[in-house]
Amino acid sequence: MTDNPWKTLKITPVYDNPWIRLEQHDIINPAGKPGIYGKVHFKNRAMAIIPIDSEGNTWLIGQYRYPLDVYSWEIPMGGGPIGMDLLESAKRELKEETGLFAEKWTEIMKIHTSNSVTDELAILYLAEELTQGETEFEETEVLQIKKLPFPEALDMVMSGEITDSISVAGILKAARILGY
């Protein structure tokens, strides 16, 4: 059955800022009972990039993730305004975080990051034929850049050292595409 078994009675905004909106939905659930559902709406599309050079190296970004209170290794990623060209946003993010430019771009997947509480959609790209330039970090970014052979990034996923869901999905998908 692919029809929507939920009925929305009312949507109440709870919180709003430039990046997210939190809503409370008064609903009738699939069992026919009243309830509430919380939803986080993202105002940007997430995009992530797996850059691969001609020697099979990739780049990871290390940064402290405030909501988790942990340091995290991830593929380059960021957000692009809904309605803006996603590939152009991905190119901007790759340049900002790594200084890299890519001649060849391949969209490799779209994923919902947490479909139980949010509508966030992430688009992942493989970026190849790279040229190194200068980074352009945003004021909120204190980033560490790590260039490493792609199989080492894959090992970091498999050992649990990389836990970011977009990075895990992207690296695993790229590994299949690249034949690792």
Score class of each variant (00 low, 15 high):
92 R>M: 14
66 Y>E: 12
22 L>E: 10
127 A>F: 06
79 G>T: 02
39 K>F: 06
114 S>P: 02
144 Q>P: 04
28 I>Y: 01
76 P>T: 05
122 A>V: 03
136 E>I: 08
131 T>S: 13
164 D>M: 02
167 S>I: 01
132 Q>A: 07
68 L>M: 07
22 L>Y: 07
104 K>H: 08
4 N>I: 09
86 L>T: 10
127 A>W: 06
143 L>T: 15
112 H>V: 06
106 T>L: 03
159 S>C: 08
98 T>Y: 03
25 H>W: 14
96 E>F: 10
10 K>S: 14
138 E>G: 09
14 V>K: 13
134 E>Y: 05
27 I>D: 06
143 L>Q: 07
180 Y>H: 14
37 Y>R: 09
56 G>L: 05
148 L>V: 07
143 L>S: 08
34 P>A: 07
132 Q>L: 12
166 I>S: 00
131 T>Y: 11
72 S>D: 09
62 G>Y: 00
174 A>G: 02
94 L>S: 03
16 D>Q: 14
75 I>F: 00
79 G>I: 01
116 S>M: 06
117 V>L: 12
10 K>N: 10
136 E>S: 15
17 N>G: 01
85 D>K: 09
101 F>C: 05
102 A>D: 11
76 P>A: 06
46 A>S: 11
70 V>L: 06
55 E>F: 08
169 A>G: 00
15 Y>L: 03
25 H>R: 13
137 F>M: 05
118 T>L: 09
167 S>Y: 01
75 I>T: 13
22 L>K: 08
179 G>E: 03
118 T>P: 01
95 K>H: 15
92 R>W: 05
148 L>Y: 02
180 Y>W: 09
157 V>R: 00
140 T>C: 06
89 S>F: 10
31 A>K: 14
161 E>D: 04
32 G>E: 00
1 M>P: 07
146 K>Y: 04
64 Y>H: 10
14 V>W: 09
167 S>N: 00
164 D>Q: 08
107 E>L: 14
22 L>W: 11
84 M>G: 00
118 T>M: 14
157 V>L: 02
129 E>V: 10
13 P>L: 15
84 M>F: 07
43 K>R: 04
52 I>P: 02
34 P>C: 12
169 A>E: 04
36 I>C: 06
54 S>T: 14
156 M>H: 02
91 K>P: 01
61 I>K: 03
